[in-house]
Design a protein around this nucleic acid. Sequence first.
RNA 1: GUGGCUGUAGCUCAGUUGGUUAGAGUGCAAGAUUGUGGAUCUUGAUGUCGUGGGUUCAAGUCCCAUCAGCCACCCCA
Length: 420
Amino acid sequence: MAEGYKIPRGTFDILPSESYKWNYVMATFRRIAESYGYHQITTPIFEQSDLFERSVGDATDIIQKEMYRFQDRKGRSLALRPEGTAPVVRSFVENNLLYEKKGNRLYYMGPMFRYDRPQKGRYRQFYQYGVENFGSDHPYIDAEVIALGYSFLKELGLTDFSLEINSIGTAKSSEVHNAALSAYFEPHLEELCADCRTRLNKNPKRLLDCKVPSCRAIAGNAPSMLAYLDEESAAHFARVQEYLTLMEIPFTINPTIVRGLDYYSKTAFEYINNNLGSQNALAGGGRYDTLVEQLGGKATTGIGFAGGFERLILSMEQENLSFGEVPHPRIFLVSLGDEAEKTAIKLLTDLHNAGISAAFDVDKTTLNAQMKAAGKSDTDFTGIMGDDEIKSGKISLKNMRSGEQILIPINELITFLKKN
RNA sequence: GUGGCUGUAGCUCAGUUGGUUAGAGUGCAAGAUUGUGGAUCUUGAUGUCGUGGGUUCAAGUCCCAUCAGCCACCCCA
């Protein structure tokens, strides 16, 4: 480390002692997604930059200041993906997945990149899981996608979160609402905070959940999003709620949920954990009925959500939840003397070939040191071999949890370990 | 991108108004224990005091810059 290299800002290593947590949540997500009939899709971590500019929205912070953009040697403008939906839609269109058996229920996991100021729960390279469902605009599908996310969080044991849903209507009704908001806030321009003044032009809906008290007071009487829903969106939203109720999924309606990406329409939802500090969104998503067509595909509706693994693990740690079994060897071999060491190494090879995790510490020679190493490894069993055992072809097997010790023939060890 | 707090051993942290060889707990290693781990005891190793500059006879301590983490804003996963 003479050079003192340091990890880039906002990134982190997943160290060996933490990896099992990541594997656990990833495996759980995969299991839940597959139980809902979803199939995994993996897309590159970089794409043409205009894929994101056109879908996420030119004016959004994600595109304006957070995207890692670069040129390759041929001058192509590429970007490290800041989110997962656009690439999946790109692949869906490019590969005509609409016509594939496994094409319209997709899930993905992988790193995303956003040049943000790092904070707990917010990183420049972060890992997301998500699902996308194409081809049906039935409100049941909305409820099912929401249910998938809900089941996942529940399956992990999380309880400190809430599901908030909203409908942002169609692009048309949203425009009308924006106009109404502008008309409403315009006269109050002087009283608004600096952020809200820029929001007024960029995205008036954002004024609705400003945290500044003076803005809040004004926003209190502002025209609500729900009041401006077109008939179809309103009916759709009502039915989504009916299905969620039928599925016994608790939710609250939060008319200030906006979502930061341009492509959303109708249903929008977030899973919020209020103990996480200011980065409190566990996952979020919504319907995007025009995105596929916008990206050059046949008009196809879609809905999906994405969540961050970092915040998930943080929440689980806060709630003291289990990440499954901590990896440890099944058996640790201890040998005394040269003959025994040879036997141990042969046995170790057999164990590895049988797919049993087995450990051995050649550097430690005394029994005591080896036993200590065995204890530290958190092994289930320790197999001890000395002169006595070698002569009789047996191994002393100590159960490290109970302390019990038995003597069994070496050639029965693998069978024994598979059974116990 | 804005404002604030912090940075000393692998980890958690102490370090008095600037003063000589920078400490503790934990973890790590060895031994007590050359056929039995987890408890206890003994001993031991480990620090560019985030980095770079400055002030000073003297800087972990003061000043400036820089990097990083955290908190709030912003944004969002």
